[in-house]
Simulated assay, not measured.
Amino acid sequence: MTTDSTGLRIGTAPDSWGVWFADDPRQIPWQRFLDEVVSAGYTWIELGPYGYLPTDPHQLQDELGSRGLKLSAGTVFTGLHKGGDQYQRAWDQALAVAGLATAVGAEHLVVIPDLWRSDATEEVLESRTLDDEQWARLAAGHDRLGKALLEEFGVRQQFHSHADSHVGTQREVERFLTETDGRYTNLCLDTGHLAYYLGDPLRLIGAYPERIGYLHLKQVDRDILAETLKNDVPFATAVARGVMTEPPTGEPPFAPIIEAVSAIDPSIFAIVEQDMYGTDIDRPLPIARRTREHIFGCTRLARQD
């Protein structure tokens, strides 16, 4: 295995072990998750849902440090298109998550928009699309949040487009980037979620290279995706059916994306995040090992540290 010191830093996340919620009896215990990350060969991880890993920064640092692990980012959830008290809701999360993440060295906050269809109950919560006023609130809210995160914590906001959210298609992602300020709001390019709506990560990278701040690596199964879109299957059900599949069996290929982003900025993180909520807890570790081997075998522009 040959790597290049200028390549992207490769890591993984609780999501690749089926973790979507801070507390769910079906999920793998956090201690076992951390141990299996090490066994799979990764150094970098994300925080996952706040409260899954220890929230005391000293305990978290001890748990990570004793295993040789490091934190790349935390995650918050926002509904800034709704206005009202949504900015305060986002900021309250940010105070907790960014405070914890930066205390152990992370420099990024992945921000996921609220879904129009619940990933917990599959209930339709609101319209699938935003009007111009909602788009304006969404963009202004994220720029305000990103500016505050940078000034308060020195952490960078990375917006994550998502299936069953208002920012999912390539056109929607491009509109979001056009209406936001790159000083405060950039993109966590999730290859699987963009491909979920038939987007092209390489074309997006080529069109907006200065806005790519972070990567999530995942692939979609083309056949399951076709049925998902045809039958309007909720995202959570699609995940249970395996729409996010083990690399390299799905799309898009990782090597061209890693190499294109590495040419922009080799300090960017590329975090494996295979949605596997509801999976048997013994299943993720072998997949994580094979995925890491695939990534480091398909490109020289990948590194562990």
Rank of each mutant, 00 (worst) to 15 (best):
V173G: 03
E174W: 01
R175G: 03
F176M: 14
T178Y: 07
G182V: 03
G182D: 13
Y184V: 00
Y184P: 00
Y184G: 01
L187P: 10
L189I: 06
D190Q: 05
H193N: 08
L194W: 01
L194G: 02
A195E: 04
Y196W: 13
P201R: 04
P201C: 02
L202E: 12
R203E: 15
L204Q: 03
L204E: 01
L204M: 10
L204C: 03
I205Q: 10
I205D: 12
E210N: 11
Y214P: 15
L215C: 09
L215G: 03
L217K: 11
L217H: 08
K218L: 10
Q219R: 14
Q219V: 07
D221G: 06
R222M: 13
A226Y: 14
E227L: 14
T228W: 03
L229A: 14
N231K: 14
N231T: 05
V233Q: 12
V233L: 15
V233A: 02
P234C: 04
P234Y: 07
T237D: 09
A238R: 01
A238W: 00
A240Y: 06
A240R: 12
R241G: 08
R241P: 07
M244K: 03
M244D: 09
P247F: 06
P248Q: 06
T249H: 15
G250S: 00
E251L: 11
F254P: 05
F254L: 10
A255H: 06
A255Q: 11
P256S: 10
P256L: 15
P256E: 13
E259A: 08
A263T: 04
D265A: 10
P266D: 08
P266F: 01
S267P: 05
S267V: 01
A270L: 08
A270T: 11
I271D: 09
I271W: 07
I271H: 04
